[in-house]
Amino acid sequence: MTKPNTGELDPQDNAASEVRSYAIGFIVSLLLTVGAFAAVLADLPSTWAIICICIAALLQIITHLRNFLHLSFSGGQSREDLLLVLFSVSLLAIMAGGTWYIMSDLGGRMHDGGEAGHAAHAMPDR
């Protein structure tokens, strides 16, 4: 092994740009988090609030991948990174889509999907 595995930065080369990238990522993540909370606290209709939160969450993921995990579609590793993203997205799509498929089917087969009829079962009989 020629390179140390302590992960030190090359001080001349890219330390400054690395730090900038981390700082930007941090600020953006912070803003997105605050935004999500704001969406809940504000008097938005709940569908809109949910949409806001979902968008903020997706942007948050992208920020983390870009700024903290150094994923990029240009540069030496772009091909690997692209494959990685595609693979992850397809697996996540299977999981999320499958959940949607299963749970909506189950929901449709329950009486009315409401909670009134089930409240009585919430307590144990014993």
Partner: peptide, 18 residues
């Protein structure tokens, strides 16, 4: 995962087996 307040215990089985 409770029946009250809009939870759904079946989602546990769903996520667990994922």
């Amino acid at each position: 995962f409770t029946n009250a307040s809009g939870g759904n215990m079946m989602n546990y089985a769903n996520i667990f087996w994922m």
